[in-house]
Nucleic acid binder design. Structure first.
Lengths: 135, 135
DNA sequence: CTAATTGCAAAAGCTTTGCAGCGCA
DNA sequence: TGCGCTGCAAAGCTTTTGCAATTAG
C-alpha cells in the first residue's frame, strides 16, 4: 500500500526528483519502522541507487518540514525518522527486548495541553517514551 | 544548601579531586538548573578554575553513572545535566527561548502505569518532554 | 531557460579517547 | 609509592554546508 507519492511532494512544494521518490519508497517498503539517515542511505545503496548521504539528510529534513515524516530523537545519539501516517502516537520501549509498542492515550494528551496552559504556554509538540519490562 | 559533597564522591568510588569538587560546586550554585558540558566548562573558566573540557565530560559521565546527576537529551543537539535531587519530574521546553520548566502531574504518572499494565508490562522509567511556546 | 536540486568533500558541533604527566590515598 | 585522574590534542560521529554540475518544470 503506497502511502505517499509524487503529488504529495508537489503539494509540499518540492520538485519530484529521483532521490526524493527513492527515499520515499525506502521509507514505505522497509520493514523497520524507524530508520536513521544512515539506514536509509544503506538501504538505497542495497537497492542500487547511488544517492549521496548529504542528500538523504537534506531530503529527510525537508520531508519533516513538510510533515511527511516524523523525526524522533531517542537516546541513541542520532535521529530516526518514520513516515507520518497522520495519527499521533507515543512509544513504549521494552528495556529487555527493545520491542517497541505504539500507543496513544487521550487522558495524557488532554493533560499535556492543560499543563502547558497552566504555565502560560501553548503546546507545540511533545515526546513521551515509556521504558517498560514484560511482567 | 549543599546537596552533594566529598563523601558522596567517595561513596561513588571516585577520588575526591579538585575538578570533581569544582564541577559539583558549579552544578549546585548555578542559577541555571540544566547545564550542558559547555556551560559547566565556561562557568569554571569564569570562576578562574582551569579545567579541561574533556575532564568536564568525563566527570559528568561518571557522576551520571554514580547517580549524582541526571542526563537529559532534549532536541537541542547536546546533552544537559542536572543534580539528581531525588524527586522525579518532567520537562517543558520553550521552542523559542529554550527555557526549561519542570513539572509533575499525578494524572499522567498514573496513566503511564495503567497503560504499561494494559499492555502486559510494568513501567520501569519514562521520558516526557513538552515542547511549548509562550502565548 | 533558470531556479531548484544533487554529489562531493570539507567543515562544523558535540563527545570520546590516547597518552604522558600529575596528584590523591 | 601506585593507580587513578587530568590536560591536551587528536580522532570519532552525526549532521550541515559551499559550490559546481545537473535536472525538473
Amino acid at each position: 500500500m503506497v502511502v505517499l507519492e509524487s503529488k504529495d511532494l508537489r503539494n509540499a512544494g518540492l520538485k519530484v526528483t529521483i532521490p526524493r521518490l527513492k527515499i520515499l519508497e525506502i521509507l514505505e517498503t522497509n520493514s523497520e519502522e524507524h530508520m536513521s539517515a544512515e539506514d536509509v542511505f544503506r538501504a538505497l545503496l542495497e537497492s542500487g541507487d547511488d544517492i549521496g548521504l548529504a542528500t538523504v539528510y537534506r531530503v529527510l529534513t525537508q520531508f519533516e518540514t513538510a510533515g511527511l515524516v516524523t523525526r524522533h530523537n531517542f537516546e541513541t545519539g542520532h535521529s530516526v525518522f518514520e513516515l507520518a501516517k497522520g495519527d499521533h502516537h507515543d512509544h513504549m520501549v521494552c528495556v529487555d527486548s527493545s520491542d517497541v509498542v505504539e500507543f496513544t492515550d487521550p487522558v495524557i494528551e488532554q493533560r499535556q495541553h492543560e499543563i502547558a496552559e497552566e504555565h502560560g504556554y501553548e503546546l507545540v509538540d511533545h515526546s513521551l517514551v515509556l521504558y517498560v519490562r514484560k511482567k
